[in-house]
Design a protein around this nucleic acid. Structure first.
Length: 268
DNA sequence: AGGTCGACCTGGCAGC
DNA sequence: TGCTGCCAGGTCGACC
């Protein structure tokens, strides 16, 4: 589910409520989402205070007073809800010493949580590319990545070693804004086309964060509310609907096993 | 070495 | 109603 804008929204919400709270009890309703033994998970959290909440790619990093970190990868359907109502999708309940709580809900149970001493213990972070909204992400760096790749630009945007945090929704939207066919090969992009992609990566992600992300089905922010950006999507999940620019129908194709939505007329 | 594909899960929806 | 098949925001490991 969540891509960078959704995870960023969750992290900002959590950042305004969780710091200073102390874990007092953890209930494991479903150990499948844990990447370490339940007893160990609880032992390394209990009694620790939350110092900070940050994001890297699509992962939430909860920094603990012990120096360790709780890593949460919500994958497709995970949710972190402050003071929410528990239901059958609640996989973990965290209680804090001030009486408040944090729920981890996850319909499909793809999500993963673990406590680590350092984030380099998590394989996901090893190959993660630059954060698109940071100064580490540069046009020249991105062009270098494009130049030696014979893959379609859509697949590159989805590759988190190329750039972190972009998923299927925003890859489609970024290419629509750039008026570029998702099938175009990375190394065949002209300089001005690469520039358009670079600018639109940042523009689309920032805009989506401003609207608190896109809720297709399961995404919710830390208060349990939906994002509003899906109303503004131009092509994603709009097969058969008119292109907002030319009114010709949006088409759906499959690339690397994932749906791609685009306008054949506008995106060349 | 780089890239694609199925597996991991649950559930909603369309079609019959 | 109930079945089947398809689809879903992600990531990993097996395989080509």
């Amino acid at each position: 589910m969540p891509e960078l804008p959704e995870v960023e929204t969750i992290v900002r919400d959590l950042h305004s409520t969780l710091p200073q709270k102390v874990f007092s009890a953890i209930t494991i309703h479903d150990p499948l989402v844990l990447r370490q033994p339940g007893q160990e998970f609880v032992r390394r959290l209990k009694g620790r205070a939350i110092k900070d909440i940050t994001r890297r790619g699509k992962a939430v990093i909860i920094h603990l007073s012990s120096g360790e970190s709780l890593i949460v990868q919500v994958m497709m359907t995970g949710q972190l809800i402050v003071n929410g109502l528990s239901d059958r999708h609640t996989r973990l309940t965290f209680k804090f010493s001030d009486g408040t709580s944090l729920l981890y809900k996850d319909q499909r149970r793809f999500g993963q949580l673990r406590v680590v001493a350092g984030i380099d213990e998590v394989k996901y972070f090893h190959v993660l590319g630059p954060e698109p909204l940071s100064k580490d992400f540069t046009l020249e760096g991105m062009r270098r990545g494009l130049l030696h790749s014979g893959r379609p630009v859509k697949n590159l945007l989805l590759d988190h070693s190329f750039v972190a945090g972009i998923g299927n929704i925003y890859a489609c939207e970024i290419l629509f804004r750039s008026r570029l066919s998702p099938k175009r090969l990375g190394r065949r992009l002209r300089r001005n086309e690469a520039e358009a992609v670079f600018k639109n990566i940042r523009k689309v992600l920032k805009e989506a964060i401003r609207h608190r992300g896109s809720s297709m089905r399961n995404y919710r922010d830390a208060a349990g509310a939906k994002g509003r950006f899906n109303e503004r999507l131009s092509v994603y999940a709009r097969a058969g609907e008119p292109c907002p620019a030319c009114q010709k129908p949006i088409v759906r194709i499959i690339q690397a096993g994932r749906s791609t939505f685009y306008c054949r007329h506008c995106q060349k």
